[in-house]
Write a protein that binds this DNA or RNA. Structure first.
Lengths: 202, 202
DNA sequence: AAATTGTTTAACTATTTGGTTAAACCATAA
DNA sequence: TTATGGTTTAACCAAATAGTTAAACAATTT
Protein backbone atom coordinates (compact mmCIF):
# COMPACT_ATOMS: atom_id res chain seq x y z
CA UNK A 1 0.00 0.00 0.00
CA UNK A 2 2.95 2.32 0.40
CA UNK A 3 3.59 1.95 -3.33
CA UNK A 4 0.12 3.30 -4.08
CA UNK A 5 0.44 6.28 -1.82
CA UNK A 6 3.88 6.91 -3.07
CA UNK A 7 2.79 6.89 -6.70
CA UNK A 8 -0.19 9.08 -5.96
CA UNK A 9 2.03 11.59 -4.26
CA UNK A 10 4.58 11.48 -7.05
CA UNK A 11 1.84 12.22 -9.54
CA UNK A 12 0.48 15.14 -7.55
CA UNK A 13 3.91 16.64 -7.13
CA UNK A 14 4.73 16.26 -10.79
CA UNK A 15 1.33 17.61 -11.80
CA UNK A 16 1.77 20.62 -9.58
CA UNK A 17 5.14 21.38 -11.05
CA UNK A 18 3.94 21.12 -14.64
CA UNK A 19 0.51 22.73 -14.27
CA UNK A 20 1.78 25.66 -12.23
CA UNK A 21 4.52 26.31 -14.75
CA UNK A 22 2.64 25.76 -17.99
CA UNK A 23 -1.00 26.26 -17.11
CA UNK A 24 -3.89 23.97 -17.96
CA UNK A 25 -3.71 24.31 -21.73
CA UNK A 26 0.08 24.32 -21.88
CA UNK A 27 0.60 21.23 -19.74
CA UNK A 28 0.89 17.80 -21.40
CA UNK A 29 -0.10 14.61 -19.63
CA UNK A 30 3.06 13.03 -20.98
CA UNK A 31 5.14 15.80 -19.38
CA UNK A 32 3.55 15.06 -16.03
CA UNK A 33 4.17 11.34 -16.42
CA UNK A 34 7.79 11.96 -17.38
CA UNK A 35 8.28 14.33 -14.46
CA UNK A 36 6.89 11.66 -12.12
CA UNK A 37 8.96 8.96 -13.83
CA UNK A 38 5.96 6.73 -14.47
CA UNK A 39 3.71 5.51 -17.26
CA UNK A 40 1.12 7.92 -18.59
CA UNK A 41 -1.69 5.43 -18.00
CA UNK A 42 -1.10 5.76 -14.27
CA UNK A 43 -2.32 9.33 -14.35
CA UNK A 44 -5.68 8.14 -15.59
CA UNK A 45 -5.67 5.13 -13.32
CA UNK A 46 -5.41 7.35 -10.25
CA UNK A 47 -7.06 10.58 -11.35
CA UNK A 48 -9.29 9.73 -14.35
CA UNK A 49 -8.76 12.82 -16.50
CA UNK A 50 -6.58 15.85 -17.05
CA UNK A 51 -9.37 18.13 -15.82
CA UNK A 52 -9.83 16.19 -12.58
CA UNK A 53 -6.12 16.27 -11.90
CA UNK A 54 -5.97 19.97 -12.65
CA UNK A 55 -8.85 20.68 -10.31
CA UNK A 56 -6.98 19.06 -7.45
CA UNK A 57 -3.83 21.05 -8.12
CA UNK A 58 -5.70 24.31 -8.50
CA UNK A 59 -7.68 23.93 -5.30
CA UNK A 60 -4.58 22.95 -3.41
CA UNK A 61 -2.69 25.98 -4.72
CA UNK A 62 -5.53 28.32 -3.86
CA UNK A 63 -5.86 26.97 -0.37
CA UNK A 64 -2.15 27.03 0.25
CA UNK A 65 -1.96 30.65 -0.79
CA UNK A 66 -4.99 31.88 1.08
CA UNK A 67 -4.73 30.03 4.34
CA UNK A 68 -1.40 31.40 5.43
CA UNK A 69 -2.13 34.89 4.23
CA UNK A 70 -5.42 34.96 5.95
CA UNK A 71 -4.44 34.39 9.50
CA UNK A 72 -2.82 37.80 9.47
CA UNK A 73 -5.83 39.80 8.34
CA UNK A 74 -8.04 38.29 10.98
CA UNK A 75 -5.55 38.77 13.81
CA UNK A 76 -6.07 41.31 16.57
CA UNK A 77 -2.84 43.31 16.52
CA UNK A 78 -2.69 47.07 16.28
CA UNK A 79 -3.03 48.43 12.74
CA UNK A 80 0.63 49.24 12.06
CA UNK A 81 1.73 45.79 13.15
CA UNK A 82 -1.00 44.18 11.13
CA UNK A 83 0.18 45.87 7.96
CA UNK A 84 3.75 44.83 8.67
CA UNK A 85 2.70 41.25 9.36
CA UNK A 86 0.53 41.06 6.27
CA UNK A 87 3.26 42.33 3.97
CA UNK A 88 5.85 40.11 5.60
CA UNK A 89 3.68 37.05 5.43
CA UNK A 90 2.64 37.69 1.83
CA UNK A 91 6.16 38.19 0.54
CA UNK A 92 7.47 35.22 2.50
CA UNK A 93 4.78 32.93 1.14
CA UNK A 94 5.39 34.05 -2.42
CA UNK A 95 9.14 33.76 -2.06
CA UNK A 96 8.73 30.04 -1.55
CA UNK A 97 5.95 29.76 -4.15
CA UNK A 98 6.88 32.25 -6.82
CA UNK A 99 4.79 30.74 -9.63
CA UNK A 100 1.60 30.59 -7.59
CA UNK A 101 0.04 34.03 -8.13
CA UNK A 102 0.45 34.06 -11.88
CA UNK A 103 -0.90 30.53 -12.08
CA UNK A 104 -4.02 31.37 -10.13
CA UNK A 105 -4.64 34.70 -11.85
CA UNK A 106 -4.25 33.08 -15.22
CA UNK A 107 -6.51 30.16 -14.73
CA UNK A 108 -9.21 32.33 -13.24
CA UNK A 109 -8.89 34.53 -16.31
CA UNK A 110 -9.37 31.53 -18.54
CA UNK A 111 -12.32 30.20 -16.61
CA UNK A 112 -13.77 32.84 -14.30
CA UNK A 113 -17.13 31.28 -13.58
CA UNK A 114 -15.90 27.84 -12.74
CA UNK A 115 -13.02 28.92 -10.54
CA UNK A 116 -14.32 32.06 -8.86
CA UNK A 117 -16.92 30.03 -7.05
CA UNK A 118 -14.21 28.51 -4.87
CA UNK A 119 -12.66 31.88 -4.28
CA UNK A 120 -15.85 33.35 -2.99
CA UNK A 121 -16.35 30.47 -0.59
CA UNK A 122 -12.76 30.51 0.55
CA UNK A 123 -11.84 31.55 4.08
CA UNK A 124 -10.23 34.70 2.70
CA UNK A 125 -13.35 36.69 2.02
CA UNK A 126 -14.59 37.57 5.50
CA UNK A 127 -11.13 38.47 6.74
CA UNK A 128 -10.58 40.96 3.97
CA UNK A 129 -13.78 42.61 5.07
CA UNK A 130 -12.48 42.71 8.60
CA UNK A 131 -9.26 44.33 7.46
CA UNK A 132 -11.21 46.99 5.58
CA UNK A 133 -13.25 47.72 8.68
CA UNK A 134 -10.08 48.04 10.69
CA UNK A 135 -8.81 50.58 8.16
CA UNK A 136 -11.99 52.61 8.41
CA UNK A 137 -11.79 52.62 12.17
CA UNK A 138 -8.25 54.00 12.10
CA UNK A 139 -9.30 56.71 9.69
CA UNK A 140 -12.25 57.79 11.77
CA UNK A 141 -10.03 58.05 14.81
CA UNK A 142 -7.65 60.22 12.83
CA UNK A 143 -4.72 57.90 13.34
CA UNK A 144 -4.16 57.62 9.56
CA UNK A 145 -5.14 59.96 6.75
CA UNK A 146 -8.38 59.32 4.91
CA UNK A 147 -8.50 57.44 1.63
CA UNK A 148 -10.70 54.81 0.00
CA UNK A 149 -9.97 51.59 1.95
CA UNK A 150 -10.48 49.57 -1.20
CA UNK A 151 -7.69 51.50 -2.90
CA UNK A 152 -5.44 50.93 0.09
CA UNK A 153 -6.15 47.22 -0.02
CA UNK A 154 -5.43 47.12 -3.76
CA UNK A 155 -2.18 49.03 -3.21
CA UNK A 156 -1.04 46.61 -0.54
CA UNK A 157 -1.84 43.49 -2.52
CA UNK A 158 -0.37 44.96 -5.72
CA UNK A 159 2.97 45.81 -4.16
CA UNK A 160 3.27 42.39 -2.56
CA UNK A 161 2.16 40.23 -5.44
CA UNK A 162 3.10 41.97 -8.65
CA UNK A 163 6.89 41.70 -8.43
CA UNK A 164 6.60 37.92 -8.27
CA UNK A 165 4.27 37.76 -11.24
CA UNK A 166 6.58 39.97 -13.26
CA UNK A 167 9.73 38.36 -11.93
CA UNK A 168 11.21 37.16 -15.25
CA UNK A 169 10.72 40.60 -16.73
CA UNK A 170 12.31 42.35 -13.77
CA UNK A 171 15.23 39.96 -13.66
CA UNK A 172 15.71 40.09 -17.40
CA UNK A 173 15.39 43.83 -17.68
CA UNK A 174 17.65 44.76 -14.79
CA UNK A 175 20.06 41.85 -15.13
CA UNK A 176 19.37 40.54 -11.65
CA UNK A 177 20.47 37.05 -10.62
CA UNK A 178 18.17 34.82 -8.62
CA UNK A 179 20.09 35.84 -5.53
CA UNK A 180 19.70 39.52 -6.34
CA UNK A 181 15.99 39.03 -6.70
CA UNK A 182 15.69 37.18 -3.40
CA UNK A 183 17.54 39.94 -1.62
CA UNK A 184 15.38 42.57 -3.28
CA UNK A 185 12.26 40.81 -2.05
CA UNK A 186 13.69 40.38 1.41
CA UNK A 187 14.41 44.10 1.63
CA UNK A 188 10.99 44.69 0.17
CA UNK A 189 9.20 43.49 3.31
CA UNK A 190 10.57 46.42 5.25
CA UNK A 191 10.40 48.85 2.34
CA UNK A 192 6.77 48.24 1.40
CA UNK A 193 5.57 48.34 4.99
CA UNK A 194 7.34 51.64 5.48
CA UNK A 195 6.02 52.92 2.16
CA UNK A 196 2.43 52.23 3.19
CA UNK A 197 2.67 53.54 6.73
CA UNK A 198 4.54 56.66 5.62
CA UNK A 199 1.84 57.37 3.09
CA UNK A 200 -0.85 57.01 5.74
CA UNK A 201 0.64 59.61 8.10
CA UNK A 202 -2.23 62.02 8.74
CA UNK B 1 -5.13 44.81 -53.64
CA UNK B 2 -7.52 46.19 -51.10
CA UNK B 3 -8.89 42.68 -50.60
CA UNK B 4 -5.46 41.44 -49.63
CA UNK B 5 -4.82 44.21 -47.18
CA UNK B 6 -8.26 43.83 -45.79
CA UNK B 7 -7.87 40.11 -45.20
CA UNK B 8 -4.43 40.58 -43.73
CA UNK B 9 -5.77 43.16 -41.34
CA UNK B 10 -8.76 41.01 -40.42
CA UNK B 11 -6.41 38.15 -39.61
CA UNK B 12 -4.17 40.29 -37.45
CA UNK B 13 -7.09 41.71 -35.54
CA UNK B 14 -8.63 38.29 -34.98
CA UNK B 15 -5.26 36.83 -34.01
CA UNK B 16 -4.66 39.61 -31.51
CA UNK B 17 -8.02 39.06 -29.93
CA UNK B 18 -7.57 35.30 -29.59
CA UNK B 19 -3.89 35.21 -28.66
CA UNK B 20 -4.16 37.97 -26.08
CA UNK B 21 -7.11 36.26 -24.48
CA UNK B 22 -5.99 32.64 -24.60
CA UNK B 23 -2.22 32.80 -24.89
CA UNK B 24 -0.04 30.95 -27.36
CA UNK B 25 -0.81 27.43 -26.17
CA UNK B 26 -4.50 28.09 -25.54
CA UNK B 27 -5.24 29.71 -28.91
CA UNK B 28 -6.50 27.58 -31.80
CA UNK B 29 -5.86 28.45 -35.43
CA UNK B 30 -9.49 27.57 -36.14
CA UNK B 31 -10.65 30.06 -33.50
CA UNK B 32 -8.64 32.80 -35.19
CA UNK B 33 -10.06 31.88 -38.59
CA UNK B 34 -13.60 31.86 -37.22
CA UNK B 35 -13.08 35.19 -35.49
CA UNK B 36 -11.84 36.66 -38.77
CA UNK B 37 -14.66 34.98 -40.70
CA UNK B 38 -12.32 33.29 -43.17
CA UNK B 39 -10.90 29.92 -44.08
CA UNK B 40 -8.19 28.52 -41.87
CA UNK B 41 -5.87 28.03 -44.85
CA UNK B 42 -5.69 31.79 -45.26
CA UNK B 43 -3.80 32.10 -41.99
CA UNK B 44 -1.04 29.95 -43.40
CA UNK B 45 -1.24 31.60 -46.80
CA UNK B 46 -0.49 34.99 -45.27
CA UNK B 47 1.55 34.16 -42.19
CA UNK B 48 2.95 30.64 -42.71
CA UNK B 49 2.67 29.26 -39.17
CA UNK B 50 1.08 29.76 -35.78
CA UNK B 51 4.43 30.75 -34.33
CA UNK B 52 5.09 33.38 -36.97
CA UNK B 53 1.65 34.87 -36.45
CA UNK B 54 2.12 34.87 -32.71
CA UNK B 55 5.44 36.62 -32.99
CA UNK B 56 3.83 39.48 -34.89
CA UNK B 57 1.05 39.88 -32.32
CA UNK B 58 3.43 39.72 -29.38
CA UNK B 59 5.82 42.32 -30.78
CA UNK B 60 2.97 44.61 -31.65
CA UNK B 61 1.51 44.31 -28.15
CA UNK B 62 4.85 44.97 -26.51
CA UNK B 63 5.52 48.01 -28.65
CA UNK B 64 2.05 49.39 -28.11
CA UNK B 65 2.39 49.09 -24.36
CA UNK B 66 5.88 50.48 -24.05
CA UNK B 67 5.79 53.32 -26.51
CA UNK B 68 3.02 55.29 -24.87
CA UNK B 69 4.19 54.65 -21.36
CA UNK B 70 7.66 55.67 -22.21
CA UNK B 71 7.17 59.18 -23.33
CA UNK B 72 6.29 60.09 -19.79
CA UNK B 73 9.41 58.78 -18.09
CA UNK B 74 11.68 60.61 -20.47
CA UNK B 75 9.83 63.94 -20.22
CA UNK B 76 11.28 66.94 -18.44
CA UNK B 77 8.54 67.91 -15.97
CA UNK B 78 9.08 68.37 -12.25
CA UNK B 79 9.10 65.16 -10.25
CA UNK B 80 5.62 65.37 -8.74
CA UNK B 81 4.06 66.00 -12.12
CA UNK B 82 6.05 63.23 -13.67
CA UNK B 83 4.73 60.73 -11.17
CA UNK B 84 1.18 61.92 -11.77
CA UNK B 85 1.61 61.76 -15.53
CA UNK B 86 3.17 58.29 -15.40
CA UNK B 87 0.40 56.86 -13.25
CA UNK B 88 -2.28 58.54 -15.32
CA UNK B 89 -0.82 57.40 -18.59
CA UNK B 90 -0.26 53.86 -17.37
CA UNK B 91 -3.77 53.39 -16.05
CA UNK B 92 -5.31 54.99 -19.12
CA UNK B 93 -3.39 52.73 -21.46
CA UNK B 94 -4.33 49.64 -19.51
CA UNK B 95 -7.98 50.68 -19.27
CA UNK B 96 -8.23 50.40 -23.03
CA UNK B 97 -6.01 47.30 -23.20
CA UNK B 98 -6.85 45.36 -20.06
CA UNK B 99 -5.59 41.98 -21.26
CA UNK B 100 -2.21 43.27 -22.36
CA UNK B 101 -0.12 43.06 -19.19
CA UNK B 102 -1.12 39.53 -18.28
CA UNK B 103 -0.56 38.41 -21.86
CA UNK B 104 2.95 39.83 -21.97
CA UNK B 105 3.92 38.64 -18.50
CA UNK B 106 2.66 35.19 -19.26
CA UNK B 107 4.32 34.65 -22.55
CA UNK B 108 7.61 35.95 -21.22
CA UNK B 109 7.24 33.46 -18.39
CA UNK B 110 6.74 30.67 -20.87
CA UNK B 111 9.65 31.66 -23.04
CA UNK B 112 11.96 34.07 -21.23
CA UNK B 113 15.03 33.79 -23.43
CA UNK B 114 13.30 34.21 -26.74
CA UNK B 115 11.10 37.13 -25.71
CA UNK B 116 13.25 39.07 -23.25
CA UNK B 117 15.67 39.90 -26.01
CA UNK B 118 13.11 42.28 -27.52
CA UNK B 119 12.38 43.78 -24.14
CA UNK B 120 15.95 44.65 -23.51
CA UNK B 121 16.27 46.35 -26.88
CA UNK B 122 13.01 48.20 -26.50
CA UNK B 123 12.91 51.97 -26.09
CA UNK B 124 11.76 51.53 -22.49
CA UNK B 125 15.06 50.62 -20.93
CA UNK B 126 16.99 53.91 -21.05
CA UNK B 127 14.01 55.94 -19.88
CA UNK B 128 13.52 53.85 -16.78
CA UNK B 129 17.14 54.56 -15.95
CA UNK B 130 16.47 58.25 -16.42
CA UNK B 131 13.50 58.08 -14.07
CA UNK B 132 15.58 56.36 -11.43
CA UNK B 133 18.21 59.08 -11.72
CA UNK B 134 15.53 61.69 -11.32
CA UNK B 135 14.38 59.98 -8.12
CA UNK B 136 17.92 59.94 -6.73
CA UNK B 137 18.33 63.61 -7.51
CA UNK B 138 15.18 64.50 -5.60
CA UNK B 139 16.34 62.47 -2.62
CA UNK B 140 19.74 64.08 -2.51
CA UNK B 141 18.13 67.49 -2.54
CA UNK B 142 15.94 66.45 0.36
CA UNK B 143 12.73 67.09 -1.52
CA UNK B 144 11.53 63.53 -0.89
CA UNK B 145 12.47 61.04 1.82
CA UNK B 146 15.18 58.50 1.07
CA UNK B 147 14.40 55.00 -0.07
CA UNK B 148 15.73 52.51 -2.63
CA UNK B 149 14.69 53.96 -6.02
CA UNK B 150 14.28 50.46 -7.40
CA UNK B 151 11.67 49.71 -4.72
CA UNK B 152 9.88 52.94 -5.54
CA UNK B 153 9.81 52.03 -9.20
CA UNK B 154 8.49 48.56 -8.38
CA UNK B 155 5.82 50.07 -6.14
CA UNK B 156 4.67 52.43 -8.86
CA UNK B 157 4.50 49.79 -11.57
CA UNK B 158 2.85 47.28 -9.23
CA UNK B 159 0.05 49.60 -8.20
CA UNK B 160 -0.68 50.58 -11.78
CA UNK B 161 -0.49 47.19 -13.45
CA UNK B 162 -1.58 44.60 -10.91
CA UNK B 163 -5.25 45.53 -10.61
CA UNK B 164 -5.69 44.94 -14.34
CA UNK B 165 -3.97 41.58 -14.24
CA UNK B 166 -6.09 40.52 -11.29
CA UNK B 167 -9.25 42.14 -12.63
CA UNK B 168 -11.45 39.02 -12.80
CA UNK B 169 -10.54 38.11 -9.24
CA UNK B 170 -11.24 41.60 -7.96
CA UNK B 171 -14.52 41.86 -9.80
CA UNK B 172 -15.58 38.39 -8.81
CA UNK B 173 -14.55 38.72 -5.20
CA UNK B 174 -16.08 42.10 -4.53
CA UNK B 175 -19.06 41.75 -6.87
CA UNK B 176 -18.08 44.72 -8.99
CA UNK B 177 -19.68 45.32 -12.38
CA UNK B 178 -17.59 46.37 -15.36
CA UNK B 179 -18.71 49.91 -14.73
CA UNK B 180 -17.73 49.72 -11.06
CA UNK B 181 -14.30 48.54 -12.07
CA UNK B 182 -13.84 51.34 -14.62
CA UNK B 183 -14.79 53.91 -12.02
CA UNK B 184 -12.45 52.37 -9.48
CA UNK B 185 -9.58 52.58 -11.96
CA UNK B 186 -10.48 56.14 -12.89
CA UNK B 187 -10.39 57.15 -9.22
CA UNK B 188 -7.21 55.18 -8.90
CA UNK B 189 -5.22 57.61 -11.02
CA UNK B 190 -5.64 60.29 -8.38
CA UNK B 191 -5.46 57.89 -5.46
CA UNK B 192 -2.23 56.15 -6.42
CA UNK B 193 -0.48 59.39 -7.30
CA UNK B 194 -1.45 60.79 -3.93
CA UNK B 195 -0.46 57.58 -2.20
CA UNK B 196 3.03 57.72 -3.68
CA UNK B 197 3.63 61.41 -3.11
CA UNK B 198 2.28 61.26 0.43
CA UNK B 199 4.61 58.43 1.22
CA UNK B 200 7.57 60.39 -0.13
CA UNK B 201 7.02 63.39 2.12
CA UNK B 202 10.38 63.92 3.85
C1' DA C 1 -12.67 37.72 -74.60
C1' DA C 2 -8.75 35.02 -73.14
C1' DA C 3 -4.82 34.53 -70.38
C1' DT C 4 -2.50 35.39 -66.23
C1' DT C 5 -1.96 36.15 -61.61
C1' DG C 6 -3.24 36.39 -57.09
C1' DT C 7 -6.94 34.88 -53.61
C1' DT C 8 -10.00 31.65 -51.35
C1' DT C 9 -12.04 27.27 -50.27
C1' DA C 10 -12.96 22.29 -49.21
C1' DA C 11 -10.84 18.36 -48.46
C1' DC C 12 -7.01 16.19 -46.97
C1' DT C 13 -2.58 14.74 -44.24
C1' DA C 14 0.47 14.29 -40.37
C1' DT C 15 1.21 14.99 -35.77
C1' DT C 16 0.03 15.69 -31.21
C1' DT C 17 -2.38 14.44 -27.38
C1' DG C 18 -5.97 12.76 -24.00
C1' DG C 19 -7.64 8.57 -22.97
C1' DT C 20 -8.26 3.10 -23.11
C1' DT C 21 -7.12 -1.76 -22.88
C1' DA C 22 -5.25 -6.16 -22.34
C1' DA C 23 -1.61 -8.32 -20.64
C1' DA C 24 2.28 -8.51 -17.42
C1' DC C 25 3.85 -7.81 -12.82
C1' DC C 26 3.96 -8.13 -7.93
C1' DA C 27 2.59 -8.28 -3.29
C1' DT C 28 -0.34 -10.60 0.00
C1' DA C 29 -3.53 -14.14 1.66
C1' DA C 30 -5.18 -18.84 1.51
C1' DT D 1 2.91 -22.79 -3.67
C1' DT D 2 -0.92 -20.99 -5.80
C1' DA D 3 -4.73 -17.91 -6.20
C1' DT D 4 -6.31 -13.19 -5.80
C1' DG D 5 -6.38 -8.37 -6.31
C1' DG D 6 -4.27 -4.27 -6.82
C1' DT D 7 -0.53 -1.93 -9.73
C1' DT D 8 2.09 -0.99 -13.86
C1' DT D 9 3.25 -1.14 -18.67
C1' DA D 10 3.29 -1.20 -23.84
C1' DA D 11 0.48 -0.77 -27.40
C1' DC D 12 -3.33 1.11 -29.15
C1' DC D 13 -7.44 4.32 -30.29
C1' DA D 14 -9.99 8.53 -31.22
C1' DA D 15 -10.25 13.29 -31.24
C1' DA D 16 -8.11 17.60 -31.86
C1' DT D 17 -5.20 20.44 -34.29
C1' DA D 18 -1.36 22.57 -37.23
C1' DG D 19 -0.36 22.55 -41.71
C1' DT D 20 -0.90 21.24 -47.09
C1' DT D 21 -2.90 20.85 -51.61
C1' DA D 22 -5.43 21.02 -55.66
C1' DA D 23 -9.07 23.05 -57.57
C1' DA D 24 -12.35 26.92 -57.87
C1' DC D 25 -12.79 31.77 -57.99
C1' DA D 26 -11.89 36.66 -58.83
C1' DA D 27 -9.46 40.44 -60.32
C1' DT D 28 -6.20 42.35 -63.64
C1' DT D 29 -3.67 42.49 -67.88
C1' DT D 30 -3.15 41.69 -72.68
Amino acid sequence: MQTTNNTERQIIEAARKIFVKKGLSGARMQDIADEAGINKAMLHYYYRSKDKLFEIIFNEALEQLLTRINQVFSGDMPFQEKVAAAVDNYISTLSTNPYLPLFIINEINQNPNRLLERFRHSPMFPNVQKFIMHIQEEMENGRIRKMDPMQLLLNTLSMCIFPFAARPIIQGLFQKTDEDFSRLMEERKQSVTEFILMSLRP
